[in-house]
């Protein structure tokens, strides 16, 4: 009987020390995490200066309609009459219409401001993030049209499916209190 007690005690001691070690181990992980923790969440965003308008954003998002949409930063827009993000390069007349427009869903509206300026506005409910306009605007215009993850739609997946498919490494995790990387604003 005495021997039995001894083995049980030995086993108990072993278990207890392992238990303590596990707790200390978890504490160390917690400590390591706390040492360089972030209070804010990290969320996905596109660096517009790295984006190559490859169209992956439109197709790889886990949402049926991508969380990535085109953004217009008016402050750097040239308000061109012939907008290379709005019109096909060979457009015969500068008139709205499917045969002249780049956008496959007609998500950009062109409104006359004053001679010779036109304002271009994105209707986000129609934009699919295909980046056709982005490409045009970047190649021949000021680059005021570019893609951004829209955080009212983004599910913030732990592994973003678009980020994995991004050919240029433009997707990065940014702190949630600075959720957008807009052109024309200083950011790291």
């Amino acid at each position: 009987m005495g021997e039995d007690n001894k083995t049980i005690n030995r086993r108990c001691f072993l278990r207890d020390s392992l238990w303590g070690a596990s707790l200390v181990g978890l504490g160390m992980v917690a400590g390591a995490a706390a040492r360089k923790h972030k209070k804010t969440d990290l969320i996905w965003q596109i660096d517009p200066y790295l984006c190559t308008s490859c169209t992956n954003c439109a197709t790889y998002c886990v949402l049926e309609e991508s969380a990535v949409k085109c953004v217009q930063v008016y402050a750097i827009c040239g308000y061109c009459d012939f907008c290379p993000g709005y019109f096909e390069l060979g457009a015969s007349v500068l008139e709205p219409g499917a045969e002249n427009e780049l956008c496959p869903t007609g998500a950009i509206t062109r409104t006359f401001v004053e001679e010779p300026y036109y304002e271009y506005t994105i209707d986000e409910s129609l934009c699919i993030g295909c980046a056709k306009c982005v490409k045009g605007c970047a190649a021949f215009g000021n680059g005021s049209l570019f893609l951004q993850v829209r955080h009212d739609r983004c599910l913030n997946c732990n592994e973003c499916a678009i980020a994995m498919a991004c050919p240029s490494g433009a997707f990065k995790r940014v702190p949630a209190d600075q959720p957008y990387l807009l052109k024309g604003e200083s950011h790291a």
């Binding site: 200066y49 190559t52 040239g78 308000y79 061109c80 970047a138 215009g141 680059g143």
Partner: peptide, 17 residues
């Protein structure tokens, strides 16, 4: 691809837009 080169200066609106 030259990114965000400001080829066209942003306009000054006379109509106060």
């Amino acid at each position: 691809l030259v990114w965000s080169a400001e080829r066209f200066p942003p306009p000054d609106f006379e109509s106060g837009h």
